[in-house]
Amino acid sequence: MPKDAKVAFVHAKAQPTRVKPSNYPPPFAKRVEGRIKRPLGDLFGLTNFGVNLTTLKPGTESALLHRHSKQDEFVYILEGHPTLRTDEGEWALSPGDCAGFAANGAAHHLINRTDAPVTYLEIGDRMAGDEGSYPEDDLKAAMTPDGWAFTQKDGTPY
């Protein structure tokens, strides 16, 4: 589809998956290896926020446990039964459940501990200058014009 084409609608599950499955450095990328993202917002030229249709294969995490400095995030479970894990506890989610994470709020991620895929919508803003912090891992992230840049917490590159 040409970049300047105006799209009215698409069938979400028929859209191509993100080319690069993860930006995490190699020590961490394996934990999200079974994550499949379909970037839907980009298809419509959305620039203020992103929308992904994401599937987690069994045993996969949505991300490392993290929080954003500026970005708000929202997830809506479509299929499957993931575990929502935050720095405040764990909750079993089901289709129709949703969760939101304000900037600088609870660290969070989803884990698929079942033997079936989990599919959900994830929506987040694209606020410039956002940073990600990872309370359990030696990792920090900064949003750059080229995407996420990761270093160790002391600033050492991976």
Rank of each mutant, 00 (worst) to 15 (best):
F44I: 09
S133G: 05
K140L: 08
P26C: 10
N48M: 13
K6V: 13
V7E: 01
G124L: 09
L93R: 02
A29T: 01
E61Q: 13
E136N: 09
D146S: 14
E33F: 02
D138Q: 10
D87A: 02
K30A: 15
R67S: 14
T114W: 05
Q71S: 11
E136G: 02
A116K: 07
N52C: 08
P26H: 11
A102H: 12
N23F: 14
L46N: 08
I36W: 03
A107V: 05
A141N: 00
Y134S: 05
S94E: 14
V32A: 08
G96L: 06
L43Q: 14
E90G: 06
D154K: 10
K13A: 15
G129E: 00
S62C: 01
G124N: 08
N104E: 14
E136F: 01
P39C: 13
G105I: 05
F28H: 10
L40D: 03
T54S: 12
D154N: 15
L139A: 04
I36A: 13
G155K: 02
A141D: 02
H11E: 12
V10S: 00
P82D: 09
G45T: 07
T55I: 04
A63G: 05
G155N: 05
T156K: 14
G124D: 03
D130M: 00
G100Y: 02
S133H: 02
N48Y: 11
P39V: 12
P39Y: 08
P95N: 08
F101D: 07
T47R: 15
T83V: 15
D72W: 13
L53S: 00
D154P: 06
